[in-house]
């Protein structure tokens, strides 16, 4: 009974989504973390609407970055502990495709909710109405790249006992271009000038990550489980 890689891909995505649905805390916690970080800024920096509007794009993206970082651990950790990861690596299908399935499921459970809730937070931060399309687009294009790049980091550190802080150090430098491009796009949109440039570059980064990161993640998983 040989089945195609596409079947394996959808099966793995369905399994991960079902698991996430059963343990809803995995979806809710990063989201809660995201909301809390965003709400810390008006409390600490300033509650002045003008100030908030200028920092809104950066605040939302930094919060998205941190919450992605927090949720990454769940991508491979439980599979590593119960041996599912070894089964995945031993399957006849290309590991990169299976890794992509894991990343997809991770993005649907952690990235997509951010995209849904971000406009609400942006509204509370008095972000200019013109910037909302840019905010949504940058999150839609950028968060998959966060998951994909993060997968490399978590695959490298999954076998380590104290990998948490190391993961942040490995991954945050790689996240910087995404952060810069997307918040620039939002700022440009708020100033009502064309913002497609940074978004296109962000898209290019995302596609680059989509094509290469699963291969790197697969190789890293093999090393971690050696």
């Amino acid at each position: 009974m040989k089945k195609s890689a596409a079947t394996a891909f959808s099966a793995l995505v369905r399994r991960d989504l079902l698991l996430a649905y059963r343990y809803r805390a995995e979806i809710v916690n990063p989201l809660l973390y995201f909301v809390i970080i965003v709400s810390l800024y008006p409390l600490s920096v300033s509650s002045e609407p003008k100030v908030l509007a200028t920092i809104a794009s950066g605040v939302i993206w930094v919060a998205a970055l941190l919450s992605a970082l927090l949720s990454l651990d769940s991508m491979f950790r439980s599979d590593y502990e119960d041996g599912t990861l070894e089964q995945i690596l031993m399957s006849p299908h290309p590991t990169a495709v299976l890794v992509l399935a894991k990343v997809t499921a991770h993005w649907i459970t952690t990235g997509l909710p951010l995209v849904v809730i971000a406009p609400l937070l942006a509204l509370s931060l008095h972000l200019d109405a013109a910037a909302f399309p840019a905010l949504l687009l940058s999150l839609l294009i950028g968060t998959p790249a966060l998951s994909l790049l993060g997968a490399i980091g978590i695959a490298l550190t999954v076998g380590l006992r104290r990998g948490g802080l190391l993961l942040a150090i490995l991954i945050l430098p790689l996240y910087v271009p995404i952060l810069v491009l997307s918040s620039t796009a939002i700022q440009l949109a708020a100033e009502k000038v064309p913002y497609s440039g940074p978004l296109l570059m962000l898209g290019a980064l995302s596609v680059l990550a989509l094509t290469l990161a699963p291969l790197a993640t697969a190789a890293a998983l093999r090393i971690s489980l050696r």
Partner: peptide, 30 residues
């Protein structure tokens, strides 16, 4: 270490690229 590259996989990324350019095209201005 063997890295297997799946053809479907590249088709997928190409599709994403196309989708992306379609999405972004209307947002550019003269």
């Amino acid at each position: 270490m063997k890295i297997r590259i799946n053809f479907n996989y590249f088709l997928l990324s190409l599709g994403c690229l196309l989708l992306l350019s379609l999405l972004l095209a209307p947002h550019t201005q003269p």
